[in-house]
Design a protein around this nucleic acid. Structure first.
Lengths: 212, 212
DNA sequence: GTCTATATACGGATAGAC
DNA sequence: GTCTATCCGTATATAGAC
């Protein structure tokens, strides 16, 4: 399964349908998308959707797996790298999420929703990926604390904080645009700043008090 | 944690319908909810839904406004309070969001989705609320920086960080449960910790270097 | 105000021609 | 493989009895 099909304007009919479905399902969710809409977006006939994918639901499951992988796959490589330092992992993790979500801005909302609405499909989608709490970064976190480089820290809070600081702006984007008068280029600039700032913030959050 | 109990089984018919609609729309989104489902949940006849609210869409707009207000209304009081200190506002804001989302855990996902899917309805829903960037807390933030109590900080990042640290766990909850093996009571305990920790984290993130 | 019955449209899926 | 035409269940909404 290729995580990297972008909207395929050409390609096989099968690929066009899948790309159209991914775009629409990711933007609007399962129920809001009509099969006729997918067919129109793909520029093909409605009957071909069922010919290739049997049903709307099967097609959706493929999209869900794809999106879920987008969200967790790269991250698992980073947090389990044997050679990078702890600080480097924090830096890479923040940058990774921001970069991947710039390319796939609707994925967080999609994952959120469909995990709630179709929990039974999640098992299919996540094939034993992502055992965060037995990852290398967690071992390194314990070491940093033991060495006195960081204050003691709940590992769950720690992971929520890194990922949340990176992901939340994408979730909040529509609100930022409406309420905060942020435009597209301002938003991107903000994200680039955050790539640099998040590792610093994390460092500061858990920095041990140096003077008493 | 009222996710399980039937909303308003007493009250007027109109109230019962509205409460049922709010519960279902908030959990599943507009398209996934059927009017028959709302009627059943409210324990009334389908025809009464249209009798009181004309259409599914009108009913949805009411729910949307309600949920949007849940999300922004209390916050606007906190950030514009004339008497509380800056630190106190940070503390109240984090606690406010965590408390209100414990009671309304589905609201963040709902707001996220429906802002995306029905942006045209947002104008109706937000009645000129929430002008964050002209709020008291923003003035106080400038003062703190001027007094040297904080490092210079982009106000947008600052607001994203406070709200994100409070709200993101609710968005991530299904993932935490699946991937992180978090159960309900662990989750609540985590949230209570975060009420105390977020103000400290924010303080540390922006603490000026004290020694050179 | 509340119900039953129904009009009308829509959406997923398939049959069958080419 | 791709199309047109259509089946059939479901969804929103309303008519009209009580």
């Amino acid at each position: 399964m290729n995580t990297e099909d972008k909207p395929e304007l050409d390609g096989t009919t099968e690929q066009k349908i899948k790309a159209a479905a991914k775009k629409l399902f990711t933007q609007k969710g399962y129920s809001a998308v009509k099969t006729r809409e997918i067919a129109a977006e793909a520029g093909i006939n409605l009957a071909l959707l069922n010919y290739y994918f049997r049903s709307k639901e099967k097609l959706f499951e493929l999209v869900m797996a794809d999106n879920f992988i987008t969200f967790v796959d790269g991250a698992s490589h980073i947090i389990n790298n044997e050679t990078t330092t702890f600080d480097k992992k924090v830096e890479l993790l923040a940058a990774h999420y921001i970069d991947i979500l710039i390319e796939n801005p609707d994925v967080p909302r999609f994952v959120l929703n469909e995990i709630q609405n179709h929990p039974e499909k999640l098992a299919k989608a996540m094939s034993a990926k992502l055992d965060i709490f037995n990852s290398i970064i967690m071992k390194q976190l314990s070491e940093e604390i033991q060495k006195g480089n960081m204050m003691p820290v709940n590992r769950i809070h720690f992971m929520i904080n890194i990922i949340g600081l990176a992901v939340f702006p994408f979730a909040a984007k529509p609100l930022l645009v409406k309420v905060g008068q942020i435009n597209e280029s301002t938003f991107v600039a903000l994200l680039e700043e955050r790539k640099l700032l998040i590792p610093i913030w994390i460092k500061n959050m858990y920095k041990p008090k140096e003077m008493n």
